[in-house]
Every structure is written in C-alpha cells, then in structure tokens.
C-alpha cells in the first residue's frame, strides 16, 4: 500500500485516467465525453512521462557545458513517446469535435442515445 504513495505520480496518473474514463462512460453529453477523453489521455501521458524521471538529474538537453555523461540526464525516451501521443490526442479531439458539430446541426441534440433513436425512427418510417 505504501508503494502507492511513494509512486505518487503514477497513482495520480491512474486517478486522472479513472476520472476521464468515468466521464466518458456515464455522461450523456457528447462534448463532455470528449472532455473526458482528453482527461483520460492526459492521465496516460503523465504515467508515461513519470517512467522517465530520475531524482536529482537534469533535463536531457546538452546545454552550456555540452556534457555527454549519461549520469547527468534523465531518460529521454518517454519524453519522445509522449510527444507522439499528444499529437495523436489533438488529432482525435479535432475529428470528434467536427463530428459533434455536424450531428448537432442535423439533429439538434448532443445526446448520442437520442440521436440513434431519431435515426431508427427515420429508418422505420422511410425504408
């Protein structure tokens, strides 16, 4: 149990993931689902970035003294992976928001269940 507190960064990351996941599952409003998705992604990137931190070391930039001693710098690999993840998260948010804009213009509601109900009603009448 104490490990949860000594690994506080990872625990907080999982809690953020949990909050985002909760919003995504239970909230009926589409915009709030997208916000929940973003919070979930932030939690995952915090988890990834915290794998690279080492106490007492500097950021992995060559800097003024341009030293190449590996014991001076933190692990640069998770930082690069998080960069890719952030770009993916931005792209996904943009597409989901544009889908929401189109759906709202057409059905005038932000509730996904209502939208499907309207679609099935139209289908039963039309086809």
């Amino acid at each position: 149990m104490e490990k949860l507190f000594s690994n506080y960064m990872e625990t907080v990351a999982i809690l953020l993931f949990a909050i985002g996941f909760l919003i995504l599952l239970f909230n009926r409003n589409l915009i709030k689902k997208i916000m929940g998705l973003n919070i979930m992604d932030s939690g995952m990137y915090l988890l990834l970035a915290s794998l690279g931190y080492i106490d007492g070391r500097l950021a992995p930039v060559g800097g003024i003294n341009q030293s190449s001693d590996p014991s001076l710098y933190i692990n640069p690999i998770p930082a690069g992976l998080v960069l890719t993840g952030i770009v993916v998260s931005v792209s996904v948010t943009a597409i989901m928001l544009s889908l929401t804009v189109r759906l709202y213009k057409r059905y005038h509601t932000l509730n996904l269940d209502e939208i499907f109900k309207l679609i099935h009603q139209n289908e039963d009448e039309g086809n």
Binding site: K3, N7, I54, P70, N75, I77
Partner: peptide, 27 residues
C-alpha cells in the same frame, strides 16, 4: 502501479539500459 519501479529511483531501474547510454553518450 505497486509493481512499477519506484518513482525517481536510479538503482534497480530497468528502464536505464544501454539504449539510454547510447542516446546520451553518442547522441
């Protein structure tokens, strides 16, 4: 999370392997 390496440790940290050394030393 309880099984992940201790946050910020540099001993017994399995992620600090030859890849990190290569990237920084010869980068």
């Amino acid at each position: 999370v309880m099984f992940l390496p201790i946050f910020g440790a540099n001993k017994n940290n399995i992620t600090l392997n030859e890849i990190v050394t290569e990237y920084i030393q010869n980068g």
